[in-house]
Write a protein that binds this DNA or RNA. Structure first.
Lengths: 170, 170
DNA sequence: TTGCAATCTTAACCTAAGTTGAGGTCAAGT
DNA sequence: ACTTGACCTCAACTTAGGTTAAGATTGCAA
């Protein structure tokens, strides 16, 4: 038996080529957690953990087992991508909260998120590049070892000027 | 009273312009932990923590207080830099272990480490750039939302092919 | 109907990188 | 001598992101 809970209605995704009378809940559209794990590459325990964090909200069967919507595959896959880009789960949740509630997200919905991620990625890349260039300066002048390097305050007079190496890093 | 322990001899750094008879231990060359914290920008507790990890080995006074060498300023500053480049303390320890034991590290010693860090930095930057470019592809085709995107195996047939979004990320 | 894999919950554990607090000692100035 | 701030150790706590174990149900299939 399938029991739909909370404010979410399980629907099949709209298929323009085949708009049957009214989209009904087909058991095959609901995905158990193990299956979800296989499809996304996440572990079962991680998926449960994400549910606890509110990143995904599966419905439950009458026997209390989780059943996910097909669109949750994208949600969970997104978590995986965003994490590898260095986002924390809190930031990821903020991004996901921009998706519509109560309907399956469209391409446009996801694109907005993707673009925002891309901006963060660009920022991180240029920060790393700046850091690398300053490090180059250090290597050139024997920095990290010699007080005379211009990136260090000279001869440990750093003492009264505040934290030193932070200067190297923007 | 100063008590020099372990295998480390406290020395002043060599100053070519002023090579006094034999370099002696001057109290002013030994740095207490609070002073070290001010000079490096680290917290006192973090410095103690790093000592526990073997990243720095201060000597002790007869009253059991830590006293650091001037060259430890560089050691600790390096930790700060390397951390901001994303290295873990374990990797940092490996790098630091390449420094000479029993003598103050020279510019050349530090340069070897700096160059190795730079290589890692380059690698991380190019990984991020590759990721960004693939993400661009996703944005362009409505990926992260639509099964038709070439970066996804189509229509959830992903199921039998293994983890999905990992494909996006090299 | 029986059997077994998949699922459930809860709680404890894990690494990393520290911070915080308790209770006690040290060192320097007056 | 006394006070005060800096220092000491040790243990517990923190956040992030999960994993692992124990014991109880569920669901599917022969």
């Amino acid at each position: 038996m399938i029991c739909v809970s909370r404010d979410r209605q399980a629907k099949t995704e709209m298929t323009q080529s085949n708009p049957q009378t009214a989209p009904k809940l087909r058991t095959t559209d609901l995905i158990a957690i193990g299956e979800m794990a296989r499809r996304t590459g996440l572990s079962v325990s991680a998926i449960r953990f994400y549910e606890g964090k509110g990143l995904v909200e599966p419905i439950r069967t009458s026997g209390n087992q989780r059943r996910f919507l097909r669109s949750d595959i994208r949600r969970l896959s997104f978590i995986l991508i965003a994490q590898q880009l260095g986002l924390g789960l809190t930031e990821i949740e903020q991004q996901l909260s921009r998706l519509p509630h109560g309907r399956t997200p469209t391409a446009r919905d996801w694109q907005a998120i993707s673009r925002s991620i891309r901006e963060q990625l660009d920022a991180r890349i240029s920060l790393l590049e700046r850091t690398r260039d300053r490090l180059d300066g250090c290597i050139g002048c024997g920095c990290l070892s010699l007080a005379k390097c211009q990136l260090y305050n000279r001869d440990d007079h750093l003492a009264e000027k505040g934290p030193g190496p932070r200067q190297v890093l923007g």
